[in-house]
Simulated scan of single mutants.
Amino acid sequence: MISWTYLNKRSAAAKAIRDYDSMRFIIEHTDEDIRTAYHDLTSLGSPSFDGLPGAKDPQAAEEHVAAGLDEIDTMRERYRQAVEYMKWFQPAWDELDEEERYVLTAFFGSRYGDGAADQVGRHLSVERSTAYRKKDHALDHLATLLYGRL
């Protein structure tokens, strides 16, 4: 496929690492989010008996249900995409050794930010420049596992 020729595989692998925690969160919490959304659909307001109209919009309850169903559909689609992502990403991630996963998580996860090289250097007892080389090597390894030869 011609599009793969122009894809920056290293950048795509780095983005995939950044998405990992979000995808895992979606998979772990979507069931509960959907249960909550269904509960909200069935928890429509009680009618008031003061003789005044309950809402300015007589279709407010129907719109509430329709919006809730749309939200549930969106959650299900997001969950489907997260599962698809994990089936693609997790085997490659698991193929990395522990040090490579640590280095990539430090550089591309949200934990250390700009101080990642220093943190990796301290953790592995290496210089900052070596930490960057380890990051580049691990990222190349992951990109090769995800996309094939670079």
Rank of each mutant, 00 (worst) to 15 (best):
I2T: 04
I2P: 10
I2R: 10
S3V: 07
S3N: 14
S3C: 04
Y6V: 05
Y6I: 09
L7H: 10
L7A: 04
L7N: 08
N8A: 07
K9G: 04
R10Y: 10
A12Q: 13
A12Y: 14
A12C: 14
A13F: 09
A13W: 11
A14V: 02
A14P: 04
A14R: 05
K15A: 04
A16I: 06
I17M: 04
I17C: 01
I17A: 01
R18W: 02
D19G: 03
Y20P: 00
D21M: 07
R24E: 08
F25S: 05
I26C: 05
I27R: 14
I27K: 08
E28G: 08
H29G: 00
H29N: 10
T30D: 06
D31Q: 08
D31I: 01
D31A: 02
R35E: 11
R35A: 11
T36C: 00
T36D: 06
A37G: 02
H39R: 13
D40R: 15
T42W: 01
T42F: 05
T42H: 08
S43A: 11
S43T: 10
S43C: 06
L44N: 02
S46D: 04
F49H: 08
D50V: 02
D50Y: 06
D50T: 12
G51Y: 13
G51R: 14
G51N: 09
L52C: 03
A55M: 09
K56T: 15
D57N: 14
P58A: 06
Q59D: 12
Q59I: 07
Q59K: 15
Q59G: 10
A60I: 11
A60K: 12
A61D: 15
A61M: 12
E62V: 08
E62W: 11
V65G: 03
D70C: 07
D70L: 13
E71C: 07
E71Y: 15
I72M: 06
I72Y: 09
T74V: 04
T74G: 13
R76T: 06
E77A: 13
E77N: 08
R78Y: 02
Q81W: 10
Y85I: 05
Y85N: 03
M86Y: 07
W88P: 00
W88T: 07
Q90K: 15
A92I: 08
W93Y: 13
D94V: 02
D94G: 07
D94S: 14
E95M: 03
E95P: 00
D97C: 12
E98Q: 13
E100A: 15
R101T: 05
Y102N: 00
Y102Q: 06
Y102L: 11
V103R: 00
L104A: 01
T105Q: 13
A106K: 04
A106I: 01
F107V: 06
F108E: 03
F108C: 03
F108M: 06
G109R: 02
G109W: 02
G109D: 00
S110I: 06
Y112N: 08
D114P: 04
Q119E: 12
G121W: 03
G121V: 00
R122S: 03
H123N: 10
L124W: 02
S125V: 05
S125P: 04
R128Y: 03
S129M: 02
S129T: 11
S129L: 01
A131Y: 06
H137R: 15
A138C: 03
A138S: 09
A138N: 00
L139M: 11
L139Y: 05
D140L: 14
T144N: 09
L145H: 13
G148C: 01
R149E: 10
L150W: 14
